[in-house]
Design a binder for these strands. Structure first.
Lengths: 188, 188
DNA sequence: CGAAACAAACCGACCATCTGGTATGTTTAT
DNA sequence: ATAAACATACCAGATGGTCGGTTTGTTTCG
C-alpha cells in the first residue's frame, strides 16, 4: 500500500499499511487469500514484523474489521451532521454510507464483512455497533419503514458486490434516491 | 450428515451427503473450513472417495452452490404457483423463500453464498439466475418498489445471518408481511 | 553533553501441521 | 470381466506460528 519502504521505524505507519493491505487483499481476492505472508509482502514487511503488530491472524483480521467499522461510524456521523431533517436521519446516513462504500474508490468496505460473518466475534462486533447505533437514534429512526429502507440498503450493497452487470450505476442512483424518499414520508 | 455408513455402494446417496455436509460446514464454520478432509470425514468417506465424485475442490463448492440455487429455484416456483395475484408474484415468492431460508431448519442456504461471492464463477451463476428470473417475470415484477422490496428481503436475510440477537423472530415476521404488502400496492 | 541501559520494532530461519491433489490399490455391482 | 465406487498411501507446497537475534529509538544517569 503506502510505501513504508525506506522509512525508519514508524510503527503506526506500518500498522496502517498492514491494515490497509489486508483489507485490499480481502476485497480483491477474498478472505482465504488473506494470508500472513501475502499481507506482509504487500506491506513490505516480513511475516515476523507483521506478527509483532498482531499476535496472530485472527487478531489481524479482527483489527481490520474494527477499523472498517470505525470508518463507517465516522462517515455516518459526518452525514448525520449535514442532514437538517430530524426524522430518519440515521437511516439516510446509513443508506448513503453504504451507497458510497459501493461506488467510491475508497471502498475497502467490501468482501471482508461478508466472509467474516462466520467469525462469532466479528458478528458480535457488528451486532453491537448496529444495536447501539439504533438505540442512539431511537427517537428519529424507529419506524418500520425506516427499518425496511435500511435493509434495502444492505441488499443494494450486497447486489453491488455481486455486480449485476446488467443494471448498474444508472438504476442504482435512482433506487437510492427512492430509498431516501421513503425515509422522509410519514412524519408522524 | 445422513448416515451413509453401512450402506453398500450408493453413489447418489454419497454424493448428496457430500453436498449436504459441505453446505453445513460452510454454514457453521465458514468457507475456509470447507476442506476436502473435513467434508470427507463428515460424510464418512475418505478424501479419495470425495475426489472421485468431484474432480477438485472448486467443483465441489460450485456443485454445492448450484445445488442450493436449484433448491431456491424450486421453492420459488412452488410459491409462485400458490399465489393468485399476478402483480408482484415473483417478488413475493422471492421474499418468502429468503424468509424461509432463514427461519427453517432446512437452512443450508446460508453462509456459502456469501463467502463464495469472491469466486467469479459463482458470482456469475447467481447473476445469471437472477437476471433470467427477472426477465421471465418482467411483466409482473418490473416496478421499482418491487426491486426495493427484493433488496430489503436480501438485507433481512443478511441480518438473519448476523443474528441481531435483540429483535429476532417477532419483529421479523411483521417486517416480512410489511414487505409483502408493499408488493401489492400500486396496481398500475 | 554523551554513553550506557533498556525496550520497542523488525528480520530470517525454522517447524509442525494441514492443504489440495495424484497414483495405485481394493471392493462391489452389473 | 469390466467398470464404477471407493480406500490407502503418499507428496510437494503452503500456512500459521515460534524463536533467537539485530537494528533502531528512547530513557537514564554521570
Amino acid at each position: 500500500m503506502t510505501e513504508a519502504h525506506e522509512r525508519k521505524k514508524q510503527p503506526e505507519i506500518v500498522r496502517r499499511a498492514l491494515l490497509d493491505c489486508a483489507a485490499q487483499i480481502s476485497q480483491e481476492q477474498g478472505l482465504p487469500a488473506v494470508t500472513l505472508q501475502a499481507v506482509a509482502d504487500a506491506a513490505h514487511v516480513t511475516k515476523g514484523g507483521l506478527l509483532h503488530h498482531f499476535p496472530n491472524k485472527q487478531a489481524l483480521v479482527q483489527a481490520v474489521f474494527h477499523d472498517l467499522l470505525e470508518q463507517l461510524d465516522a462517515q455516518i456521523d459526518d452525514l448525520l451532521e449535514k442532514d437538517p431533517d430530524r426524522h430518519g436521519r440515521f437511516t439516510r446516513a446509513y443508506i448513503r454510507a453504504f451507497a458510497n462504500a459501493e461506488s467510491e474508490g475508497a471502498s475497502n468496505w467490501n468482501a471482508l464483512p461478508l466472509s467474516s460473518l462466520t467469525d462469532p466475534e466479528m458478528k458480535a462486533m457488528w451486532s453491537e455497533w448496529y444495536a447501539s447505533r439504533l438505540a442512539r437514534h431511537s427517537e428519529t429512526d424507529a419506524g418500520p419503514e425506516l427499518g425496511i429502507a435500511r435493509y434495502a440498503a444492505d441488499g443494494l450493497w450486497l447486489a453491488g458486490l455481486l455486480e449485476y452487470s446488467g443494471v448498474e450505476a444508472a438504476g442504482q442512483d435512482a433506487l437510492i434516491e427512492q430509498l431516501i424518499s421513503i425515509t422522509r414520508k410519514k412524519q408522524t
